[in-house]
Design a protein around this nucleic acid. Structure first.
Lengths: 301, 301
DNA sequence: TCTCATGTATGAGAATTATTCATTTATAAA
DNA sequence: TTTATAAATGAATAATTCTCATACATGAGA
């Protein structure tokens, strides 16, 4: 069976013109190469070269093998290089899972500096999970889970990345415009716009409406943050979202932000990862960037 | 440095799901594989897999290497196959050189059965040589030389392949039509058509005209046999060529064949090859086919 | 929670393979 | 011829790979 060494020897013979020269560049003796190749010739029952005077003339089989050597050996060399990159932690990929709809825009602010800082590392973002984000993390479908709702589990670590306040966004043409805070009952005649996830995962329901046993007049769901805010601006409904996110649009759209209840709903974004990967350089880099990203977000109008 | 064995082990792990299974299919022990891979991991300072319970979970570097294994190993297997074909003499190529213009049509009759008999062997025909056919044979530009004029040389063997008679071809409208033989002097008022090679290599000159110190009225050269014979048929000149070749056209063109001199000019086609390749199966196959091809040629009108 | 079964890691010694050294053979050049 | 250069080869040695025995880790089942 052909081995890498056979290809290497053949390539060096072609480069140097003789076995002796090849032996020099491979740091072996002429004898070693001769033995190695003769053994192959015996095993395969072929001649790779004929002696033409004191030179070597490749046979057809030999020329064929040389071609293959020139094709395959560079590939091995590339593999060695790439492996070195893995060793230096310059190479890799990070699967990021998102269980937090509005966080997408924030994620972009983290991904950008990450990619700049780690040129060899690719980031892949997943937003849909058959069995939920935790399962995806567990099954190695993703390496990081971004969520506002961490679940306490032995083998998964969650780190809070930044705090935010959930606020109500209304149109400046709404009768609610100008309010500084709001009660659940005041939403009873409003159309509530949310992302299309189960109510159980919407804090506006869990922490605000349901405890007060209130419901909005209508509940509509929309995929895109931009569209939700366009709808709000057009006074077609109200929406609850992170304050920092609403603030990003506050200058360009006629919207007004209102605190939910007396003291507001305060949450954290968490990043979760498998405990055993605590030392993974890419994961820690990501988390560091994520934490510092909070400072870059708009704080007030 | 990555070796083939590392790729093989990784591929078998992926196939069998465990080191132990891989060891089985590679006819080695689990211990051997573990040692081999650990050594690579130490050399490269990478982890290729992590133990996940009692299973193996490839790291990114490991997955990368597995991809490469699935890509490269089949190529090695193809090389092994091809080498086996070379060993079985099923694979190769034969460079055939031609120093005999009219032989081209005969060559086709040999090449066809050869290609059918040796499906893995390619034939390449060359007709122009910078330093002559012998030099080409010597320099391994070709493996076989087909010529009517063998040169006695130590390292080249020539074998006669079939005998032929050189005849004069004239138009049925020529005043020479009907003659059964001809003298050199009778060509003095004729236009002689030949292939464009030096007169020294034209037997009609060397063996017929020059010994009698005669010359044709005019000497014109043409590349193609078909055109020469069309010209002859139109009574625009006469030509000397192998009798068997002229006979191939005798039914379709108004031509007449005349013996040169009393007893005719008798020649042989020779096939030459390098002495050291006496045992080359393809060369011997070719020569056998060449010899038997003589029988298939037209003998008389 | 304690076996039992299964799978990987590892050290030491055995087995195998690769490499070198010393020669031989062949050939081109001086 | 002689000399120099290059490949092939046999025997001895060096290096490596592989196996054996065993430790370690984990999941399943009593």
């Amino acid at each position: 069976m052909i081995e890498k060494i056979h290809l290497s020897i053949l390539r060096e013979i072609a480069r140097g013109g003789s076995l002796t020269a090849a032996a020099g560049s491979l740091n072996l003796t002429q004898s070693a190469l001769s033995h190695t190749m003769k053994k192959l010739e015996r095993q395969c029952n072929i001649n790779l070269w004929l002696k033409d005077g004191r030179n070597i003339r490749l046979t057809e089989a030999g020329s064929y093998l040389l071609e293959q050597a020139n094709r395959l050996l560079p590939q091995f060399e590339r593999i060695d290089d790439t492996l070195r990159q893995f060793a230096d932690n310059e190479k890799g990929s990070l699967g990021v899972g998102m269980e937090c709809h509005p966080c997408y825009q924030w994620l972009l602010k983290v991904v950008q500096p990450f990619l700049a800082q780690s040129p060899g590392v690719d980031i892949d973002v997943k937003q849909r999970f058959q069995f939920g984000g935790m399962a995806a993390l567990f099954n190695y479908d993703i390496d990081l889970l971004i969520t506002p709702d961490p679940i306490n589990k032995e083998s998964i670590v969650f780190e809070p990345v930044f705090p935010y306040e959930l606020v109500l966004v209304v149109s400046q043409h709404s009768k609610l415009n100008g309010l500084s805070q709001i009660t659940p009952a005041q939403l009873s005649d409003q159309v509530l716009l949310t992302y299309p996830v189960e109510t159980a995962r919407l804090d506006i329901f869990q922490q605000f409406l349901l405890p007060a046993q209130c419901m909005p007049k209508l509940h509509k769901t929309l995929e895109a943050t931009d569209i939700i805010l366009q709808m709000v601006a057009a006074n077609r409904g109200v929406a609850a979202m992170p304050k920092w996110l609403a603030l990003e649009y506050a200058n360009s759209l006629p919207i007004h932000l209102i605190r939910l209840g007396n003291s507001g709903i305060h949450k954290h974004i968490y990043v979760g990862y498998r405990k055993q990967e605590k030392l993974n350089k890419h994961i820690q880099t990501f988390i560091t960037l994520a934490k510092s990203s909070g400072a870059a977000l708009p704080a007030e109008v």
